[in-house]
Write a protein that binds this DNA or RNA. Structure first.
Length: 586
DNA sequence: ACGAGCTGTCATTGA
DNA sequence: CTTCAATGACAGCTC
């Protein structure tokens, strides 16, 4: 019996052993145990087929709703996500809606496709390298092998394309036009979407916004104009450009949505929750708010055009004596009195008796709370700042609309990527994103305080140039403090990076030195052992020679000398003496 | 949930 | 005395 059953058991057991061996070999490469499980894979294939069927069914249904929903989307330039076009005028819950947007996607019920499913469907439908490259890294988990972002073959195709920005943009536009994506994205937004007055074709709606992210790109406005409703253009040209410097007027246009969503109180509270009390008590501030409101009235009900951005984020408005206090007092970041602002004279404004708000770096850090939270808030308020200086510079130098749109659609694309270079692995990408996300905090603060310099200049300028630059502008105490802090932090950040780099190099150098010292020790030990052995051998030979010579010596009577009574001694001049041994007295 | 690694920031020190 | 780079320590974040 056993002999019969064994042959049946044996092969399967062997298979399992083989699988185990293979798995152990591959587990280091990230392969899961189930990769070798046939039934598991079969199940997976079945599941995928079933899912594809469902998706195909849904695709038909979703296509019908595409047109209606197409117009409701607006690309969030900061996150690259699609958000409802409009911001409800009320102060309620808009932040929550935005903040929970991603979660909302994930919480879709079975009727709607998940975002990953949408992206997978997109990848299957449009197996473009560019599209694959454009897919946010977080989606790669569900992307089928055909669009494997890590495929090396993607890279040449990506880099060889001379029209990369255009191609990328085209791919994005195709993605945007996909009904599945539209539907998927829209279903979550429908509820909070205010259709009144904001129903515009998405392309029309997006382009103007992209232009806002291109500093110094006023000339492009003519391009944007073609697809832009007249009221936008009028608003920009008339209301803004007269009071705001051209660069920032466009940049700041993003903020209004936030302002409209948060309202003055929420806006500041978002930044500086602790300052609420101060705000309430401050008379001039409310008057400033009045200014704000009046400006808001002047700029009629146009969502992209709002107030806070006008006076708080543009140097031009700074010189024109706009209600700066609100924007500057949020963050001195240096513990200096913000009261020093020439425009703020209200005694009631001071939180502390001495007129200082008591903002220190640590205070501001506390207000920042968890950097993730605050920075995401910053990101919502100042999405534009996520364009690095380099990116802005490159954009302003070479402003193809495709590149601009691409940048706006995915602002976190590195300039190198935008120029067609291959992407590093996702882990690195995420690290990069993280550092990028942390980077612009000071930039945002500088914008909020209307610092008329770039953070890059503040940090990297030599001392003399920096002082010269500072002397050319009249900055109030808060601004000076912030600039100093930015410079200090920036320098220190670089110093820390250098320090760590040096430390790592030291460690590597020490390890190398340790290795070589170990080798040296090994070599010396070996040499010592050899020499010791040689010495022993020479001693042996010397002893033999000694005995030989000694035995040949004879006294006057012809008798040999007794070794116990005499010994041979050798002097430096090669003379041999026969020396009687000293008698020991016991 | 926990720990490791990375990064930014602050405080301190010495040149 | 001031400025600045270097560095230890800490906190927050990601994996």
């Amino acid at each position: 019996m056993m002999e019969i059953e064994l042959p049946k058991m044996h092969p399967s057991q062997q298979d399992m052993d083989l699988i185990d061996i293979l798995w152990r070999q591959d587990v280091d490469l990230g392969a899961g145990r189930e990769v070798f499980d046939f039934s598991y894979r079969q199940k997976e294939v079945e599941l995928r087929l079933q899912r594809e069927k469902e998706e195909e069914k849904q695709q038909q249904r979703l296509r019908e709703q595409e047109k209606a929903l197409l117009a409701q989307l607006q690309l969030d330039e900061e996150t690259g996500e699609f958000v409802p076009r409009s911001a409800p005028p009320t102060h309620t819950n808009t932040t929550n809606a935005e903040v929970t947007q991603n979660e909302a996607f994930a919480e879709q019920d079975g009727d709607a496709m998940s975002f990953d499913e949408c992206m997978q469907l997109l990848a299957e439908t449009f197996p473009l390298d560019e599209a694959a490259e454009s897919v946010p890294p977080c989606l790669d988990a569900s992307v089928p092998p055909s669009t494997d972002l890590m495929m090396p073959s993607d890279i040449p195709a990506f880099t060889q394309n001379p029209l990369l920005p255009g191609s990328l943009d085209q791919a994005w536009m195709e993605l945007l036009s996909l009904p599945e994506l539209q539907q998927c994205l829209n279903m979550q937004m429908q509820d909070s979407l205010d259709m009144d007055g904001f129903m515009k074709p998405s392309t029309e709606a997006q382009d103007p916004n992209y232009s806002q992210y291109l500093p110094g790109m006023d000339h492009l406005s003519s391009v944007q104009t073609e697809g832009c409703p007249p009221e936008y253009i009028n608003t920009y040209d008339g209301s803004f450009n007269t009071m705001v410097s051209p660069n920032l007027s466009q940049m700041s246009l993003n903020v209004p949505d936030v302002r409209a969503e948060f309202g003055p109180e929420e806006f500041n509270e978002l930044f500086y929750p602790e300052m609420r009390e101060v705000k309430v008590n401050s008379g001039p501030l409310t008057s400033d708010e009045g200014n704000t409101v009046s400006q808001l009235v002047e700029i009629p009900s146009d969502p992209p055009v709002n107030t806070m951005d006008l006076h708080s984020f543009s140097p031009g408005s700074f010189s024109s004596g706009k209600p700066e206090p609100m924007s500057e007092f949020p963050d001195s970041d240096s513990g200096l009195s913000l009261d020093a602002s020439p425009h703020t004279s209200s005694p009631g404004k001071s939180l502390n008796g001495d007129g200082s708000f008591g903002f220190s770096d640590s205070d501001s850090e506390e207000m920042d709370g968890s950097p993730g939270d605050m920075e995401s808030d910053y990101a919502e308020i100042f999405p534009l700042v996520y364009l690095t200086d380099e990116a802005q510079a490159s954009l302003s130098e070479k402003p193809p609309a495709e590149a601009l749109q691409m940048k706006a659609k995915n602002p976190k694309i590195e300039p190198a990527e935008a120029s067609g270079h291959s992407k590093p692995p996702f882990t690195k990408d995420k690290q990069k994103k993280r550092s990028e996300a942390r980077l612009p905090r000071d930039e945002q603060r500088a914008k909020a305080l209307q610092i008329p310099f770039t953070v890059d200049k503040i940090i990297n300028l030599p001392v003399d140039d920096f002082n010269e630059m500072m002397s050319k502008h009249q900055l109030n105490e808060a601004q000076l403090a912030l600039v100093r802090d930015i410079r200090r932090r920036g320098k220190n950040k670089v110093a820390a990076q250098n320090c760590r780099k040096r430390k790592m190099e030291n460690i590597v150098g020490l390890e190398y030195e340790l290795d070589s010292l170990k080798e040296e020790k090994e070599r010396l030990m070996k040499e010592k052992s050899e020499r010791s052995s040689n010495l022993r051998e020479m001693k042996q030979q010397l002893s033999t020679l000694y005995q030989e010579v000694f035995s040949m010596l004879r006294d006057e009577d012809g008798k040999p000398f007794s070794p116990s009574e005499y010994s041979l001694q050798h002097t430096a001049d090669d003379t041999l003496f026969l020396v009687p041994r000293l008698k020991r007295f016991s």
